[in-house]
Design a binder for these strands. Structure first.
Length: 482
RNA sequence: GCUGCUAUAGUGUAGUCCGGCCAAUCAUGCGAGCCUCUCACGCUCGCGACUGGGGUUCGAAUCCCCAUAGCAGCACCA
């Protein structure tokens, strides 16, 4: 009926983007994607959409400890769910030859050296702005040591390749950062190697080789950007345009993959799609639409301020999307069974969607007994209106509520300000468990809901919910929001 | 400790580059009312912010300085 209101928050213009862009989303396959990833993924996607160009998915799996074999699949699924317009896909684990080749080049031009110092010792020297003994190696010595690394001549921790930066750089984070390390038993699901490239090196190399023009990522990478620029300078490559947005927290949610994993292991969470988590699959399970996530993330934008992501803002976007299309049903929480004296059997016809008669009706057959929400009888109400059916007098004289037919006229109920209440005929009542982040609600719903698997519906007076599974036991639904 | 970034209502955001049109935008939230056979949707009205202090200027949310607060980095993680 109403056109959905769409408020587009216009993202700031990117420099040097007029002729198109090459951007990338580069997750680490350590688990499924969450809202933090969605921000990076959607922002980059939106700029590619705006300026035209290509959108690279680069799986950054160069640290075996941070690779979960299942995550390759989950990341792929999550990206499809978001509807990203990915044009190219790369796995860093396929590209070790490139990293070795360019690593050797960097050593060859004096931009890096092989360091055999103990890690702790190097750290102390670095803090004191003092070169470690290895920094004085000639290029020939370094190339020899590099070959020895590749040939398995060092054990884990015995040698690394460092990028030569400015040792007296005022920021200790910049001084001679590592580019390769040795791992003896890496247990990587996709490759066998002992010399592993590190993130700052692979990112700089890949961004250049893949022609990335613009990088948008969190400000936790600001220092990495400065490090990567050293590599760009050594080779004389053209730098991309960088933008770093602020840190994003989410009300009452852990976004750390390792913490989520621990929670699942310990039984705190039922799995990656536990609706208390901020993973995309958890959002999907409770009926949040990808377009709502996209809108919410675009609304936040690329500001450098740290922000707190609000569920209310996401829910509002989602409500705009689902309210026009979600069919309405009765769900009776904490049901109490009543028989209604003096009422004749009849059928009620309730709209599947208010204000849109074309969507049709559902039929509820009243005979004599109905289930009503227990909470309606907390106070001694005199009359209630069974929605789309009739009025009911409530007699409290015996101490417990006794219901008698109170006429059909809606105006009577209005005059007495009687609550309009959802109800279910005994014959149609279907067991329904509604899972909410705050706990489960046991109740009953209309039988028709059995045909709504995977759909988002609105339980009138309760809220929107996604129908998850149907079984002989009944219906399992996940609460979305009001 | 060192290095850097940021600071607009409960939340998010516009305005800040190029000072005046800002008695500060929009959304969300909250409150009141209307509509309605849902506590949804829609409509109306209302609530609510330029971190603090100096300075420059006829004029500062906007420029400068200091303070404070938050965040990030200083890993053979990404």
């Amino acid at each position: 009926m109403n056109a959905p209101k769409v408020h587009i928050h216009v993202l700031p213009h990117l420099e040097r983007a007029e002729k198109g862009v090459v951007m990338r989303f580069a997750p680490n396959p350590s688990g499924p994607l969450h809202l933090g990833h969605a921000r990076a993924a959607v922002l980059n996607d939106a700029y590619v959409e705006r300026y035209g160009g290509s959108y690279i998915l680069r799986i950054e799996d160069t640290d075996p400890k941070r690779v979960d074999p299942d995550a390759y699949r989950m990341v792929q699924e999550d990206i499809e769910w978001m509807g990203l317009r990915i044009t190219d896909v790369f796995y860093q684990s396929d590209r070790f030859d490139q990293y070795y080749r360019i690593g050797r080049e960097l050593i060859g031009i004096g931009g890096a050296y092989v360091c055999t110092c103990e890690n702790e010792q190097f750290r102390i020297l670095k803090q004191a702005k003092t070169p470690c003994p290895c920094r004085g190696h000639t290029i020939e010595e370094n190339l020899e040591l590099w070959q020895k690394m590749l040939d398995g001549g060092f054990y884990e921790g015995e040698a690394s390749v460092r990028v030569r930066t400015t040792l007296d750089h005022p920021d200790p984070a910049m001084r001679d950062f590592p580019a390769f390390r040795i791992l003896n038993e890496p247990m990587h699901p996709r490759i066998e190697a002992q010399v592993y490239p590190l993130m700052n090196f692979t990112v700089a190399v890949d961004d250049h080789l893949m022609g990335v023009t613009h990088v948008i990522r969190g400000k936790d990478h600001i220092a990495n950007t400065r490090r990567q620029k050293f590599i760009y300078e050594y080779f004389g490559w053209n730098e991309p345009v960088y933008r770093h947005y602020g840190r994003m927290g989410i009300e009452g949610v852990v976004l750390s993959t390792s913490q989520m994993r621990e929670g699942i292991r310990s039984g705190t969470y039922s799995g990656w799609d536990d609706i208390r988590l901020g993973t995309l699959r958890a959002l999907a399970r409770r009926g949040i639409k990808p377009e709502a996530v996209r809108q919410a993330v675009l609304d936040i934008g690329i500001g450098e301020t740290d922000i707190s992501f609000s569920w209310d803002n996401l829910f509002a976007k989602n409500r705009d999307i689902i309210d026009p299309v979600a069919d309405r049903f009765f769900f009776v929480p904490d049901p109490l069974l009543f028989s209604i004296a003096g009422a004749t059997p009849r059928e009620a016809h309730a709209l599947l969607h208010p204000g849109n008669e074309k969507r049709g009706y559902r039929t509820l057959k009243f005979e004599n007994e109905v289930f009503l929400p227990g909470q309606e009888f907390q106070k001694e109400v005199q009359m209630i209106r069974l929605k789309d059916l009739f009025n009911v007098h409530v007699d409290w004289s015996s101490g417990t509520p006794h219901l008698t037919y109170g006429g059909d006229a809606l105006s009577d109920a209005r005059a007495l300000k009687a609550p309009v209440v959802q109800w279910l005929p005994v014959g149609d009542a279907t067991r329904c468990t509604l899972h909410t982040p705050d706990g489960d609600i046991q109740g009953l719903c209309e039988g028709t809901v059995r045909s709504m698997e995977d759909k988002v519906v609105q339980f009138e007076r309760v809220g929107f919910a996604r129908i998850d599974t149907i079984s002989d036991e009944g219906v399992t639904a996940y609460f979305c929001h009001k």
